[in-house]
Simulated assay, not measured.
Amino acid sequence: METAHAGQTTGNGPVRTRMWRNGDLEAENFPIAELGPRLRETGTVVWLDLLAPADTDLRLVTDELGLSPVAVEDSVTARERVKLDRYRGYVFLNLYAPETTRDGLVLHEISAFVTERALVTVRERPGFDVDALVRRWDEGPRPLPEGAAPDTAPLVHGLLDLVVDLQLDTVQALDGDADTLEELIFDDAFPVKEIQRRSFRLRKDLIALRRVALPMREIVDELLRRPSRLVPDALVPDFQDVYDHTLRVAEWTDELRDLVANLLDSRIALQGNRMNEVMKKVTSWAAIIAVPTAITGFYGQNLPVPGFERLSGLLVSTGLIVGSGVALYAVFKVRDWL
């Protein structure tokens, strides 16, 4: 078996290549120029990974596989929607692998051309773990039956399975963020700025994940659909498992979106309740202060009153002030206004 420790570099970014013969890995990291000759060999399947490809590399692959200029343009255009397009002799896929970072959700775009015996992945930016994809190919799924025609279906399964698993990991991480947000909302400290920051980021990440995860159901279903099914019978259970995972991601994302909406409604209600509590306390203290003010104002009239210029008058007014204040405090405390 031919091997190389690192991918070759042509154009703007590194290129990785692999060739399998009858299901066994035979060559790795060979030049792009060898794509045609290796595909013309018997029983071979080839994979190319192009990172920020140069025009010459794209032209070589396009001419060799007979790709449409429209599909090639989509592969190097950023922020294309998630989709599966059928062309004569091949299928074009556009997928997004999510990654959770400290700054929020990051989506890594992956375009793929799938022919009967070639898989070409195109990425404009690094970030997607290609080594994890290679490991997934090496570890499964099970090979096609003895004597079956060479097929890229196992490679496509590995790619889809990895992307959907990353989406599952992401929605699980967002679920943890929702739990943290719930704890903050019902915390006695009620950190308003932190709650607003986390809720905005969580809603933004959920919208982004939902936009790239929901179409995955249609993509896998299209691959499995008869009579033009692209998946051999031996791999149907493996693709069906990926389809089940796409349903789980979609359902979990929708549930989280509803949960976050309910949490935000709860935050508004709790904030209103806390405002009412503050207003009750302010009103209660204002009432306690108002009674002594009324008493001292009454004794401040320019008229003789009981106890005028006597010690008994001072004691009576002081007693009224202290007694009324204590009585009002006790009443408000019993009613839980303070």
Rank of each mutant, 00 (worst) to 15 (best):
D57F: 10
L214C: 10
D55S: 07
L247P: 10
D179F: 11
L50N: 05
R135D: 13
K281Q: 15
Q167W: 11
L25R: 12
T56C: 07
G104W: 07
A148C: 10
N12K: 11
V72A: 00
V156D: 00
N12L: 09
D165C: 08
E309W: 13
V192T: 14
R210L: 02
R198A: 05
P304C: 00
R225W: 10
R123H: 11
L224A: 01
L107V: 03
L303D: 15
F200I: 06
V334P: 08
P292A: 07
E109W: 08
R38M: 06
R81H: 11
D55M: 03
H108F: 11
G307D: 08
L247V: 10
A330W: 15
E109N: 03
R136F: 10
D238R: 07
A27N: 06
K333C: 06
R102T: 10
L67I: 01
V334H: 15
D254T: 09
T9L: 12
A250Y: 06
A33P: 13
E116A: 14
G147E: 04
L39H: 05
D165R: 08
Y96H: 06
P145S: 05
Q172T: 11
R125S: 13
M279N: 13
E251R: 13
N22D: 15
A52F: 03
Q167H: 11
I219C: 04
L144H: 06
R117H: 15
M279A: 11
L25T: 10
V164W: 14
L206Q: 03
P53W: 04
G7D: 04
M275F: 15
P141Y: 03
L107P: 07
I207E: 12
L303Y: 15
E64S: 09
T17H: 05
Q301I: 15
R248D: 09
V61S: 02
E251Q: 14
T101I: 02
T296G: 08
P150L: 00
T296E: 08
V106D: 07
T62E: 09
